[in-house]
Write a protein that binds this DNA or RNA. Structure first.
Lengths: 244, 244
DNA sequence: GTTTGTATTATGTCATACATATTTAATGAA
DNA sequence: TTCATTAAATATGTATGACATAATACAAAC
């Protein structure tokens, strides 16, 4: 490695687009532009910044991709309230995410489900409880006595819980995470018999029991119940840890 | 409104860039390209797809903005493992997010902190516990007997907890959420005396007590302690609900 | 063998032109 | 005047051609 000369820091090699993007963002801030406001034209930016329209376009395109700007074809561009979740959607592809990230997202789900109890109790209404009841009954009907773990039933029940949390962002987040779980299940649980837990572990908590707890219990009791319901998944998460 | 003619669906008015973006993504998938692999040149894409280099560039730029592609200046482009979190960073600007989103992100934090107990206990090691101890002591020293709520102390303690969860994604997520909380505190707690809780509510749990619980307790007891520690914030979250 | 020069190459940047839908202004007919 | 039609101006989307620049590889020179 060539030795580092003193007093000679590397020159700024960043691209123009990078700089323009920063300038644009600070421009919006300084002018106190809010979502809905329209912004200057590409050419105006180009002239003011002393760069070509191409560069401005690319910088604006970045912000558009991030959801900060809305562009209507022959009208102009306006500031937009960014949709947190939408940005995730396009990259939440299990085949592109690394093993470690997938694992961490899986843990993320466990954390969310453990932590949402208070919001469930705070916002629970009869209508939702009825629907949850229906979901559990449908599940029990198809399982015909035998306790069977099926992914779609899981999704139906837990998805309803997310919905009942009354937090749209959380809900959408869960929607995004679904394919990840699907993927993790298909790949990591090949040799894991989740059913085993249902029989071997006397403490296992079913959806029915969670539902009842949500009816007559408290956030505290519900969390404990949920913890036991998720026992196999926690085991799975922690076991993988040990293996690394 | 003009009547809708039968058998005449509107023509595809989507931009070329949109289509090219989709084509590119499916190209990567079909050719089973994985992170690290290099992809064809802009001109090759342009020729194959029958569009100008401009369009290809814009489509590629989108994917780059999303973190799916890495572009090195005069070498070429390679597929990249997208960094889930990085995308958030640029848009997580409290002044751009809506009131409702801010509120939901605030709730998100509560959910996370309530749900991470099991991971704290699973991964806790002496070194981290010592550091946490140091944080609490520093906090107690500066507060000089008087229990005082200061944001930086909160961040230090709870940030350490996130770190101890051993989940990098969760950690980074928390980092992103910090400015949001900062903002929420500055705006929503003007008339709210959080200190009041420390004295009026006998059940209030301090950082010191949380630490002790983490030492000698269980995930279950820790969750309950955390719930009481977060009591003012839960109250805040639920009170806002009622007001709407 | 190390250095230096050179050609190639892919992205980054610039300039120009045109297409098209939107908006606004102008025009003309009733 | 009022309404409908036309025309002009406008902003983004797309195409094309050109050049700059740095990375790479290879040849040349010492």
């Amino acid at each position: 490695m060539a030795k580092q000369l003193k007093n000679l820091k590397p020159v700024d090699t960043g691209s123009l687009v990078d700089k323009v993007e920063v300038r644009l963002l600070s421009f919006f801030k300084e002018n106190n532009l809010k979502p809905g406001d329209s912004i200057p034209k590409e050419l105006e930016f180009a002239d003011s910044l002393g760069v070509s329209r191409t560069v401005v376009r690319e910088a604006l395109l970045r912000l558009r991709t991030l959801g900060l700007i809305d562009s209507k074809k022959h009208k102009g561009m306006t500031l937009k309230r960014p949709d947190i979740i939408n940005n995730f959607a396009r990259i939440m592809d299990p085949t592109l995410l690394g093993e470690d990230t997938l694992k961490q997202l899986f843990e993320f789900r466990l954390i969310l489900e453990m932590g949402m109890a208070d919001f469930l109790f705070e916002h629970k209404i009869q209508k939702d409880m009825d629907e949850l009841e229906a979901i559990v009954e449908a599940e029990e009907a198809t399982s015909s006595g035998k306790i069977r773990f099926t992914l779609d039933k899981e999704v139906a029940f837990h998805g309803k819980l997310y919905q009942m949390s009354n937090n749209i962002t959380l809900q959408k987040f869960q929607d995004l995470l679904l394919p990840v779980f699907n993927y993790v299940y298909q790949n990591d649980t090949k040799n894991t018999d989740l059913d085993g837990y249902h029989f071997s572990n006397g403490q296992f908590v079913s959806h029915r029991m969670l539902l009842k707890n949500l009816k007559v219990g408290t956030p505290e009791t519900f969390r404990n119940a949920m913890r036991r319901h998720l026992e196999p998944h926690f085991d799975h998460a922690f076991k993988k840890d040990a293996g690394k």
